[in-house]
Design a protein around this nucleic acid. Sequence first.
DNA 1: GACGCACTACCTTTCAGTCGGTAGGCAAGG
DNA 2: CCTTGCCTACCGACTGAAAGGTAGTGCGTC
Lengths: 207, 207
Amino acid sequence: MPDTRDKLIAEAEVLVRTRGYAGFSYADLAEAVGIRKASIHHHFPTKEDLGLALIAAYGKKYDRALDEIWRKTEDGLKRVEAYAELYLHGLREEQGCLAAAMATEIGILPERIRDGVAQFFERHVAWLARVLSEGRANGTIRDDVSPAQHARMIVATLEGALLMELLLGGPAGFKDTLSALRKSLKPSRPPGPVNRRQPAGARRARL
Amino acid sequence: MPDTRDKLIAEAEVLVRTRGYAGFSYADLAEAVGIRKASIHHHFPTKEDLGLALIAAYGKKYDRALDEIWRKTEDGLKRVEAYAELYLHGLREEQGCLAAAMATEIGILPERIRDGVAQFFERHVAWLARVLSEGRANGTIRDDVSPAQHARMIVATLEGALLMELLLGGPAGFKDTLSALRKSLKPSRPPGPVNRRQPAGARRARL
DNA sequence: GACGCACTACCTTTCAGTCGGTAGGCAAGG
DNA sequence: CCTTGCCTACCGACTGAAAGGTAGTGCGTC
């Protein structure tokens, strides 16, 4: 039994991800959650408050997912693939990325929300940079990739693919992009046992 | 002296690219162009009519640019870089992609506009697939890239990079992504005269 | 009895869209 | 040459609906 506030955030997230920030109203949200419009203002006095809570909650949700991926495997390529799976999941539900939706509305976005969205991207880029540099070190990522540059590229690629494949090729189209991306990261030779400092207990990514 | 209709399309394009489709009103557009709100309805009876004209004009503008790039060089990598430059130009003007902005609002987009946006992406993917396969043939693109897959990836990457770098790193951040992308396309050895099987008469695509 | 939460009722502003009308251009016809 | 008629372009004034937001009330629970 999630409390009302959580339900509001959950439903508002869906609305933004399918219609954009300016594209939904308190009336829409009220109907989705099953309370009255005025009651939403009790939890989120202004739409900006709601938007801020949305991007914060979305960011935390992703932080947890990144953390889980990190713990589940030390294989750089698998980590990236598990990261990509997060986007693919959105695509299957026919929902875009909340941050991307908000980012396209820069011009009308309250500044604090903009900051939240920027932080969202920054954290992902930083996390991927760590994944890549560690992957290079343990031989699971090509050694000619630049972690900083490729981290940016990966986020950009996945955000773009989600955006585009929502109306083009669906999951199949997304996977095309994904295999092209994989090719640019995979080491030409599989990591030899020398480089491999994988712990004894084999783990697997959930992808 | 561009006529009013053209001015309306030009200004509306800016509005959508900075604020999204739902994020601007006829009142905003009227002010930007310097005519009255009612007069806009004379040219575009409904907002859907306007949106349709917008994506059509935007598509044509890009078609011309792609055509010019095609004619200017036969080097696959250079073609891709010139294509990327189109996005970079938007970034410098602090404007996102019109199609991307509309794509994030799928849930409220009139169907005909959705179709227009989907076509926009499809044409770009198709054009890039030709660029890549021809580039492979003349040795200016790595021979292990799959034109169909990489074409999708390139559009996705550039769309995503534009989206993200508008609030993150600006042109500098974009160029990071771009150099990572370049690395995945460039042949490991520069094209030798042996591989080069370019016909004497240069060809051109109409696209 | 104070607080949390949802409600009814209402506010102001803005939204897309409509209406009737004006001003000017242009071509046909007497 | 001058009227008549039709056209495009624009306008002020308006409409109903929907936007975000407010005020005050009731009602159950610590």
